[in-house]
Design a protein around this nucleic acid. Structure first.
Lengths: 158, 158
DNA sequence: TGTTTCTCCTACTAATCTTATAGGATTTAT
DNA sequence: ATAAATCCTATAAGATTAGTAGGAGAAACA
């Protein structure tokens, strides 16, 4: 399971990505909108800033904005920042590789073989999809519903 | 990351699966072979027994054996037993589903959409592969190496 | 210049989870 | 009987999680 930090972090980023990129977004606004404890959120946004995903403006009317475009903020990066490795075993992690203490023959380990497949499957999703994809999918989901609610809006009038 | 329990559990099961299914396997033998603390292993094997994966024989010359064939012990089942849900968000878990506390519109959640894809990818591997597949892959890996070590053993003599 | 409103930073804490260990009760073979 | 094994519960140290507390520092603005 994701930690609250990772989940809150993703939701906060999503919220920021939806706002005007020129206007600083207040912690308290995010806190309110996404039901994230304000003080907790502060530390999370700070982490995101230190990682180079967000930039901040201090003082009155300050707040946060994305430092890099939403399409370049991968989900994997955010998950790793807060929760560490995506892999389920250290020996199959790309970014945090460590051999298992007592593994005699890593090359022959059936477990490694299987969990490497799992890591590949999840990594290929999380490192490919970005903040932007969250937004795109959300729009797609909403559109889909509004379409199926309306009566046959298939072809727009000329 | 997997917990030690899950990892130890899988390794223990693998060890047991490799032994004669008629002869009870001692905790101490597994502990020694796989470098798992004996007392810790005891509780793990007990869990596996209570879950119906292992059966035990008490008393002298007692020990553990598989209750069901290796091909029916999925990795997913063992992981879930020790570590809970495979999903990264409660709202995308098949076996432990829970709505997110403050999620207003689960149907429109971009995060859910993406992590449901992740859950599907990992679940489809972990619930399809079994203890038997670990053994099969291990054998395949060893064979591959021994082949490439030998000089062209491609076609056996008639 | 002083006040307000933000971020920034560190330290702390309560609760839970992890990774075991301890000590014996129970069961069975010999 | 005794030895050797599982069974069961309790305990405990350490790490992690999910926050909270309290202010320092920066900028806008009156």
């Amino acid at each position: 399971m994701l930690s609250k930090k990772a989940k809150y972090g993703l939701k906060a980023l999503e919220y920021i990505a939806k706002q005007d990129p020129k206007t600083p977004v207040h912690t308290s606004a995010i806190s309110l909108a996404e039901s994230i404890p304000r003080k907790f959120l502060e530390t999370i946004l700070l982490d995101l800033k230190h990682d180079g995903i967000l930039k901040s403006k201090q003082g009155k009317n300050g707040g946060y904005n994305l430092l890099i475009p939403p399409s370049e903020v991968t989900i994997g990066r955010v998950v790793r920042l807060f929760d560490g490795p995506i892999a389920l075993l250290p020996c199959v992690s790309s970014n945090y590789y460590e051999p298992c203490e007592d593994c005699e023959n890593e090359a022959f380990c059936g477990l490694k073989n299987i969990f490497s497949e799992v890591r590949e499957a999840t990594g290929s999703i999380l490192d490919k999809l970005s903040l932007n994809d969250i937004l795109i999918r959300e729009r797609a989901l909403k559109k889909k519903t509004s379409n199926s609610t309306k009566a046959k809006p298939r072809s727009p009038k000329k």
